[in-house]
Design a protein around this nucleic acid. Structure first.
Lengths: 231, 231
DNA sequence: GTCTATAGAGCGATAGAC
DNA sequence: GTCTATCGCTCTATAGAC
């Protein structure tokens, strides 16, 4: 599976996400007309990501946000209760995106070799699709307990795949927790340093394939140097 | 070389760094007695790292810093011209630490196989020694051009080692830029997510060794599966 | 005429600077 | 302690759709 194929299956637009946010927060959002609300939420998130990327969420003032969205301060406060609330909405939504789609991928692949490959690629492709959400969540949630347990959760999925593979003789034995950590670090690299890969002219498919080959070189036991034809 | 050995050779204390900062900024620092200045600078840096870790540098107020250092606001302004100036001092010093020590390591090892191993480990050990400096620089300088060119510089060192190794038949051919990026990502993992490794009870030596083995599995050409006895 | 969404002056609190 | 700028946020008047 390459990025194009992945996008067709799991791809959601920014508009879809904003609509989901609207539906999940109808009690606090004071706007009645769905289309108006969804369009403005999209503008707000875009602006938050843009400003936060440049100077961080804490340093972003509500007036910055007002200027970039073209909305007034009063309007903005019709969409969220306060700056803190806005942060929480974005983080919650970010985690929901990741969790939902990764679970779907897990269900679709079974043998450890294929599953590892699929989950590694899916995470990279997801972070490409929703890069601003991933970047924002990483940078602005680093110390929140919820973020740590999210990272733990994702890592355990990888660890379990590696263990299952060892049991079946497909993967070498080793410190699977440590290996899973390394995988996570490299996955994060893609959305944390996009500027670098733009400069080097490396595509998301090249990156994901390289990562998969790297892990296969380390994990696959000698006998099974060519696993299924996959894809 | 393990962490203990590395520490003996390259280890500098926080006091040493503060003294270096004092000497590099004697024109702006208004304190004349060196010992007083150095001790207070150490206190200031400690406090900045602690507060910034919890809520980010932007969100740290000068009053926060005053409270945690036990120094008055007026005293603090005798050590730096303003909050912006303080940020720059820390970043500049952080980069000097990394650059100086990595260059020393480069000089000490020559064959690509040994050199790659040494530079990977040295970076991890350095980030363990000066973790607050590394973490702060990563988080608070992400968008500064200087930080990007620093990352580029470190990556090129790795790329060149990989290329030299390929020429000598020690390493496989491949996209060395991409491989170097992956190494950098995993090195950063160590200081960005220390809480994780504390929880998993993984030492810096275990981490560094695992990283080296992972890269050797991917990079070493078949014929040379056991390089020198190193260390 | 009614109701929704918006505008933007203005509030108290607090920031950095000295 | 003081000064000024700016912060997050509130509030009321009003514009515009139906």
């Amino acid at each position: 599976m390459d990025y194009r194929a992945f996008k067709k299956i799991y791809g959601a637009s920014n508009n879809d996400i904003s609509r989901e946010v609207y539906k999940n927060n109808q009690n606090t959002i004071q706007i009645k007309k769905e289309e108006t609300a969804v369009n403005n939420l999209e503008k707000i998130f875009d602006a938050v990501f843009h400003i936060s990327y440049k100077k961080g969420f804490q340093a972003m003032s509500m007036r910055d946000l007002s200027q970039r969205t073209g909305m007034s301060l009063g309007s903005l406060y019709a969409y969220f209760k306060g700056k803190k609330d806005l942060l929480e909405i974005i983080q919650t939504q970010g985690w929901m995106i990741i969790k939902k789609d990764l679970e779907q991928v897990l269900k679709a692949y079974d043998p450890p070799g294929e599953r590892l490959k699929a989950i590694i690629k899916a995470h990279v492709f997801l972070s490409e699709l929703f890069r601003p959400w991933f970047y924002f969540t990483f940078m602005e949630a680093r110390n929140i307990e919820a973020a740590k347990s999210m990272e733990d959760h994702n890592q355990k999925i990888l660890t379990q795949i590696l263990k299952a593979g060892e049991t079946q003789g497909v993967f070498k034995s080793g410190d699977h927790d440590l290996t899973a950590s390394m995988i996570k670090a490299m996955q994060q690299e893609w959305y944390l340093k996009r500027w670098k890969y733009k400069k080097l002219n490396i595509s998301v498919d090249q990156f994901a394939d390289h990562l998969v080959r790297l892990m296969e070189a380390f994990c696959l036991s000698q006998e099974s140097t060519k696993v299924g034809k996959g894809e």
